[in-house]
Design a protein around this nucleic acid. Structure first.
Lengths: 206, 206, 206, 206
DNA sequence: GATGAATGAGTCTTCATTCAT
DNA sequence: TATGAATGAAGACTCATTCAT
C-alpha cells in the first residue's frame, strides 16, 4: 500500500463534473474537521456530499488522494493570502517588512484554521504532503526573496538561516496563539510581541 | 469509544511480568516509530515483543493505554533532561540563562526524537495526553519560575507572555532543525542563532 | 455495551438487497436453531447465507439486532396465528371460547417451535425483546378483551387475573407437551385435559 | 468441545479443600446472579472467591462443571424444601392436599430465586442439566406418589397426566407471579386462585 | 457516467484454559 | 497443592474499495 497514487483520477472537464468534485471536497472538509482523519470514511463523505460512493471513486482513486486534493487547495489559498499580505505593505523600512511578514503569517492562519489543524496534525503523513502543508515553505521562500532584494550582498547561507528563523518563529507563535489564546489574535498582542522579538534580530542580521 | 480508560490494567509484581511489560513497551515503541499510530496494531506489537496478544491485554486494557504508558515514560525522561540542563548552568547572567534554556530545549529533543515525533504528531489526541507531551508545558513553567526569581516586580501577565515566547521559539527552532538540518544540532549553529535572537529580547523584557 | 441499538441499519430498497436480507435472516434462523445463541456467530451466519460478513453488517448493526429482527418476524407470525384461531371459532358458549383459546395457544406453538424455543430460552434478554416474545402478552390481551365482551360487569382486576391464569396455564401446558410429549399435540390429549381444567374455572369466574 | 465432562475433578476430602470449594461456589453464584452466564468469567469467579484461577481449575475441570455443581446444589435445596412443605400438611382432604402442593411449589421458588432464574433462563443448556433444574421433575414425582396413595386404582397413565397438569400449572403460575407481581406471593392471591383452579380438577380426576 | 450493494482483509478485544514456578 | 503469568483461538465489527446494473 505504499506507493499510492495521490493524483486525481481524471480531470473534470465538464461543468457538472467540476461541481461534483467541489461538492465532494467540501463534504470531505466538513467530515475531516468534525471527525478527524481516522473517523473520516469515504462512505460518509460521499453521503454528506449527496453523491454515491462510486462517484467519489470516479474522481479520487483512494482516500489519500481525496485528502491530498483538499490539502492542495488549502495550500493554494494560503499562498494567495500570504502574497496578498506582503504586497499590501510594500514599504521599505525593515520594521515595516517584519511587520508585513508577521501579518502575512497571521493572515495565512486565518484561512480555515480548523481544516488546517486537522491537515497538519492528524493526517498521517500522506506521501510528502504534510511537509508542504506548513506555511513554512511558502513564507520562507518569500522571506528569502525579500532579503535578497534588500541586501544583495548577504551570503545565501546566511539569508536562508535568517529566513528560517523568522519564518519558524512567526509560524510557531501564531500557531501557539491560535491554540492557546485565540483572542490574542484580535487584540494584536502577539503581533506586537513578535515585532518586539524579531525586528532587532532582523536589523542586526542585515 | 470516547471515554477509554488509559490506566494500566494491573501492576506487574513478579519479576517475570515486569520483564514482559518492559518488552511490550519496547516493541510498541519500535512499531510506533516504524509504522505510525494508525498502522500500529496490538497484534503486531505483541508479535514483535514475542508475547501473546493476551499478555499484552493483561497489562494494557487497550491500544490507547499502551501508547499512553509509552508517552508517560517519555515525558518523565524529558522532564529529567530539562531539569538537568537547567541545573548545570545555574549562572546568573541573563545571557547564560537564555543559553541554559536553549540547551535545555535542545537536550530534551535528544531523548528519542523519533518516538517523540510520532507521539507528538501522529497520536490522535489521546485523552488529554498530547497536551503535556509537548515539552512546552514543562519548559515554560521553568522559565516563568526563573523570570520571577530574577525580576520579582515583573507583572505575572508579562512574565507569562515572555515565557511563552521564549519557550515557543526554542521549541520551534529546535524542532525545525531536527527535521530539516539535524547536523546543525551538532555544529551548534542554531544554538548560536537562537541566542542571537532571544538574548536581546530577554534583556529588554526584564 | 448495554444500550445497543436493535434497529435495522437500513431498509433494503432494491430487489437484490431485499433478497439478501431474507437470505441472511433465514440463515440466522438455521444457525440459531442448530447452535443456540452463544454459538451463533455473525461470521457463521454470513457464511451460511452465502453472503459476506460485510453485507450482514450492512443491514444489521450488530448481532443482537439480527436476532431481534428474527424475533420480530416470528412474533408477527404468532399473532397472526392466534388471531386466526380465535376468529375461526367465534361461537358464544363459554365452553367453545375456552376451546378456542386452547387451540389458539396450541396453534401459536406450531409456528416454528424450534426457533421459538431458542428465542425464548436462550436469547440473553435482548433489550425488552423477550418480554413480548412470549405468546403471553398477545394471548392474554385477547382473553381480557373476550372476557369484557362476555361479562361487562366483571371488575377489571378480576378480569386481568382470570386472563393471566388462563393464559399462563395454556401456555405452560402447551409448552410442556411440546417438550415432553409432542404426540399429545396430535392426539388432542392435552387439548382435552386443558378443557377439563379450565372450563369449570372459567364458568365459575364469570 | 461437545462431550465436556461436568463431573467435579476431584472430591475434596480434606476440610480445607471443602472450604475452598464452598467459597468458589458461593462466588460463582454471586457473579452468575450479577452478570448472567455469558458475563461470568472463571477468572472473575476465582478473584471474587479470593482464590487463584489455578485453584479453581483444580476443583472444576471447566466452566460448565462449575455451574453444574452450583445447579446441583440448588436442586438439592429445592427438593428438601418441597419435601418439607409436603410433610408439614399431611392432612387427608383433597383440598388440603392441593393446598400443600401449591404451597410446596411456592416454597420451592423462595430458595434463592435470583439464582434460580439465571440457572433456568440463561444457562445455555448444559448437558441435560437444565431439564432437571425445573422443580417439575421433583414435584411431579411427589404428586404421582401422593395420587397413588390416595387412589390406588387410578391407571398410571392417568395419574401421570394429572400430576403433570397440576405440577405444570403450579409451576407456571408461581413463576409468572414472581416475575410479574411479586407481591401476590405475600398477599396469598395466587395461592387462592390456584386453589380455585386446581381443586375442582383434582376432585373430578380422582 | 452514476449508483449502491457487496466484499473481505484486517482490527481490537475477551476469556477459558494451561503450565512453569 | 497453590499460584498467576501466559496463551491464543475465536468473535464482533469497520471501512476502503470494487463492480454488476
Amino acid at each position: 500500500m505504499r506507493g499510492k497514487s495521490t493524483t486525481p483520477r481524471k480531470l473534470p472537464t465538464q461543468t457538472r463534473s467540476r461541481q461534483t468534485v467541489a461538492t465532494i471536497l467540501e463534504a470531505a472538509a466538513q467530515v475531516l474537521m468534525r471527525n478527524g482523519y481516522d473517523r473520516t470514511t469515504t462512505n460518509l463523505v460521499a453521503e454528506k456530499a449527496g453523491v454515491s460512493i462510486g462517484s467519489l471513486y470516479e474522481y479520487f482513486p483512494n482516500k489519500e488522494a481525496l485528502v491530498a486534493a483538499l490539502a492542495s487547495a488549502h495550500i493554494d489559498e494560503l499562498i494567495a493570502r500570504i502574497d496578498n499580505a506582503l504586497q499590501i505593505s510594500e514599504e521599505e523600512t525593515p520594521s515595516s517588512f517584519v511587520g508585513a511578514l508577521i501579518r502575512a503569517g497571521l493572515d495565512a492562519h486565518r484561512v480555515n484554521p480548523a481544516l488546517h489543524k486537522v491537515l497538519v496534525e492528524q493526517v498521517p503523513r500522506i506521501g510528502g504532503l504534510a511537509e508542504s502543508l506548513d506555511i513554512q515553505t511558502v513564507l520562507q521562500q518569500k522571506i528569502e526573496h525579500g532579503l535578497h532584494e534588500r541586501s544583495p550582498h548577504l551570503p545565501p547561507t546566511r539569508a536562508r538561516m535568517i529566513a528560517l528563523v523568522l519564518e519558524t518563529c512567526i509560524e510557531a507563535l501564531t500557531h501557539r496563539a491560535i491554540v492557546e489564546k485565540p483572542d490574542w489574535l484580535e487584540t494584536g498582542e502577539i503581533e506586537a510581541e513578535a515585532q518586539l522579538l524579531l525586528e532587532p534580530y532582523f536589523q542586526g542580521a542585515l
